[in-house]
Design a protein around this nucleic acid. Structure first.
Lengths: 129, 129
DNA sequence: CTGCATCCATAAAGATACTG
DNA sequence: CAGTATCTTTATGGATGCAG
C-alpha cells in the first residue's frame, strides 16, 4: 500500500543524509572491489565473476547497473554469437582509484597497528628466550 | 537456536569479502560524515548530533565506538559535573581525510555531469530563442 | 553467456524510552 | 549530557530458476 501511515517520522525517505551525500558512488558492499578489478582494463561479466568469486550474479549485475547509471563504468555489448559484454571504467570512474587506494592504505595501516598488540607481545616473549 | 540448519549456503559467514577488506573503516552509513565533522577539531557528543541532525543517538554512539576501536577517533572524558566527552581524529584517522575528500570530489563531478542532460537541454532551448 | 525475477536472511539504521 | 536498551523498518546481499 502506497499510502500506509507510519508512526515513525521520516515522511520522506532519507533525503541526502544516509550515505551522507558523499560515498553514494561506493554504496554497495562489492562496489570498491568491482572498480578495483576494472582498474586494470576492460573485463567481461564472467571475468568479473571469476575475479570476485564470492559475489553472486545478481549483486554483480545490480552494482554494475548502478555504476553505469552513475557514469562510473561503461558497458559495451559485443554482438557475438555467445553474447559478450565488456565493462570498463570511465574517465570519471578512474578518478576514484586514487581515493580507493588511499582508503585501502590507511585501512592496512590500521590493521597493522591493531595487530601490534598481539604480535608485539608474542615477539617479546620469543625475544626473551 | 545456534545450530539452525540453513538451506542456503554460506556455512561460514562472509569472511573478508563483503566490504571487500578495504572500506571496512568507512562501513557505517554515517561514518564518513562523522569523520568529516571531526576534521575541523574536537567535538562533543551533542555537538556532533547538532552537526548531523538526521543521525540518531544510537547510531552515532555505535559508529563512534566502532571508529574508536579501530583507532580512527579518540575519546576523552571530562570529569565535569555535567558529563562531557570530546571526540577527535587520531593521526591515522586524519589520513582518511584526503581519501574522503577525493571521493566527495568525484561524486560531485558525477552529479554535475548527470545534471548536464537536463540543464544542458534547458539551456539549449533558451539559447535557441 | 549475460542477466532478470523471486524469495529469504541478515545487518544497519531509526524511534522511543530509560539510566547515571 | 551522554549514552543504553528494545523494537521495527529498510536495504543489501545470497540462492535459485528462468530467459534472450
Amino acid at each position: 500500500m502506497a499510502l500506509k501511515i507510519r508512526k515513525n517520522q521520516s515522511p520522506p525517505p532519507p533525503r541526502g543524509c544516509p550515505l551522507s551525500h558523499c560515498m553514494e558512488i561506493l554504496k554497495g558492499a562489492w562496489t570498491p572491489n568491482v572498480i578495483w578489478c576494472l582498474a586494470a582494463g576492460s573485463r567481461r561479466f564472467s571475468e568479473l565473476r571469476h575475479d570476485i568469486p564470492a559475489v553472486s550474479a545478481k549483486v554483480l549485475t545490480v552494482r554494475l547497473r548502478d555504476l553505469e547509471k552513475k557514469g562510473v563504468v561503461a558497458r559495451a555489448v559485443r554482438p557475438t554469437s555467445p553474447p559478450s559484454v565488456e565493462y570498463s571504467l570511465t574517465d570519471l570512474g578512474a578518478e576514484l582509484l586514487p581515493a580507493i587506494r588511499a582508503i585501502v592504505e590507511v585501512s592496512h595501516k590500521l590493521k597493522m597497528r591493531n595487530n601490534e598488540a598481539c604480535l608485539g607481545r608474542k615477539a617479546a616473549v620469543e625475544a626473551a628466550e
